[in-house]
Design a protein around this nucleic acid. Structure first.
Length: 466
RNA sequence: GUCCCCAUCGUCUAGAGGCCUAGGACACCUGGUUUUCAUCCAGGCAACAGGGGUUCGACUCCCCUUGGGGACGCCA
């Protein structure tokens, strides 16, 4: 049998990080098995589904490179089919019309809760043989006795008593089918062999299996993957955590890092931390997915991101950075060649956003000096050092890192002070803060003219301070 | 409340009864390299939730407790 997996989000918001991981797992498994990955949009909730959300999900999938082999299939395009299945269920006495009012249902639930019982539909209309009417819904006739057994690739065997499951609504009073019916029909029709989805659906599985059985349909294999918690170990929260996948891109993370981070959340292969896409496909297996939920760790993501940034070629990195340069409103037309800057900067940052900010001084005037550094480096004596450097650099024709470095050494010797007393004030003068690549390379990239201007400014700054 | 699921360092995890004095990674700390920062290298701190069984022997199996999560919708 051909392996077919699917990702079936409901378009009520962006693609969130947990959904992305589920999609990744489904995608990896399909790829590994030489199967197909289907994208299905579960938009039967007409109230909440939006086109913007569909676009956002597609954008997220696209960014991560989780391409689908089939779809996107929209459930709203398949209403005729759902109607047909519901009719079959009705005809075969596996479903019935129900005219219980919402008020009655609400009241019943309340009473059951008060009686320390699990709220369940009491089957009031189950044997009434009601006909379709204005306010009727269709309910599935769940078996009254026996157990449902789920064999899950992550959980193992899970057994649920049918007494725990009530007669769920499969068609709303407005004629729209509901989730539990549509997933079942779609997974069946689309010949989905493996349903890989979030843990939150585990409780729905027994009722879905019952519907499948009533339909005499093939029951797929299941893998319910655990949830992802926020950085504090609690449920993901929009306020604390970056939940949307695109937020990670905007925050300066490479898709390679995000994918690698996600694959290791709930899955592992021995002690290996870094996986190329090919390795992931080769080594991933749904039987190796962990049972317990995991928490997000931005530090680890940052480490992975830095790893992938270091691994890129300067040209690739420069290309990748374009998006962030635009976002940061930085104009790089005047200043050193970006690729050259990447060469000396790519090991120094953990996100692309940070990288843009770190190289900003090459392309824009310094508006202020880092206060802490200024206090430390811009002491009165530094003005003299900077003046000496400025004089020497002014006279320097060969603006190469080697020559620049030679000047530095000469200055150290001439003034009889330590390297730190020269290098650090100089670094602060030209970059505005205390960190940069080797100071000679930094100056070379910055250029002679800018170097002299900034030295002059720094000297003025120190003198005005006195 | 009822049902279902889960439980190893702060975090991600290895561990499928003896290989465990519980391994790796991130973070953190220390030292080295670096005129700075970062990288890199060396080292360190740090966990089997608790209690009962089963067994010659439990991180590994069973039960209970505790703690966390999920479901209980005319949402998906």
């Amino acid at each position: 049998m051909k392996i077919r997996t699917r990702f079936a989000p409901s378009p009520t918001g962006y693609l969130h990080i947990g959904g992305a991981r589920t999609a990744l797992f489904s995608w990896l498994y399909a790829k590994k098995m030489g199967g197909e990955f289907v994208l299905r949009i579960e938009d039967t909730d007409r109230e909440r589904s939006t086109q913007e959300a569909v676009d956002a999900i597609l954008e997220g999938m696209n960014w991560l490179g989780l391409s689908h082999d089939e779809g996107p299939v929209y459930q709203t395009d398949r209403y005729d089919r759902y109607k047909e299945v519901i009719k079959t269920l009705l005809n075969e006495d596996n479903a019935y019309y129900c005219n219980c009012s919402r008020e009655r249902l609400d009241k019943m639930r309340e009473e059951q809760m008060a009686n320390k019982q699990k709220p369940k539909y009491d089957g009031c209309c189950r044997d009434k043989g009601l006909a379709e009417a204005e306010d009727t819904v269709v309910r599935f006739k769940n078996p009254l006795e026996g157990d449902v057994e789920i064999t899950d690739h992550v959980r193992g065997k899970v057994i649920v008593s049918n007494q725990e499951i009530d007669d769920l609504i499969i068609e709303r009073s407005d004629g729209n089918p509901t989730y539990n019916l549509t997933v079942v029909v779609d997974d069946w029709d689309m010949k989905i062999s493996h349903v890989i989805r979030g843990d939150d659906h585990l409780n729905n599985t027994p009722r879905q299996i019952n519907i499948l059985k009533a339909l005499n349909a093939h029951i797929p294999e299941y893998a319910h993957v655990p949830m992802i918690n926020g950085t504090d170990g609690k449920k993901l929260s929009k306020r604390r955590d970056a939940v949307s996948v695109m937020q990670y891109r905007d925050d300066g993370y490479l898709k390679e890092a995000v994918i690698n981070y996600l694959v290791r959340l709930g899955w592992s292969h021995g002690d290996q931390e870094i996986f190329s896409p090919e390795e992931m496909i080769e080594k991933f297996d749904i039987d190796d997915i962990n049972k317990s939920s995991s928490s997000l760790s931005i530090e680890k993501l940052q480490w992975l991101n830095q790893h992938y940034m270091k691994q890129m070629t300067p040209v690739q990195l420069a290309k990748e950075l374009q998006f962030y340069i635009k976002q940061a409103n930085l104009d790089i037309t005047d200043g050193p060649n970006l690729v050259e800057v990447m060469k000396v900067y790519q090991e120094r940052c953990s996100t692309l956003v940070e990288l843009v900010e770190d190289i900003r001084y090459f392309y824009e005037d310094i508006t202020e000096y880092n206060a802490k550094q200024a206090k430390k480096q811009f002491k009165p004596a530094a003005a003299e050092v900077l003046q000496s450097l400025k004089d020497s650099y002014e006279a320097l024709d060969d603006w190469s890192a080697e020559a620049i470095h030679q000047v530095l050494e000469n200055t150290v010797e001439k003034l009889e002070i330590g390297f730190g007393k020269v290098g650090q004030p100089l670094r602060l003068a030209v970059t505005g803060h205390g960190r940069s690549p080797s100071i000679d390379i930094t100056l070379e990239l910055l250029g002679k003219q800018q170097t002299l201007i900034r030295l002059e400014k720094a000297i003025e700054f120190i003198e005005s301070y006195l």
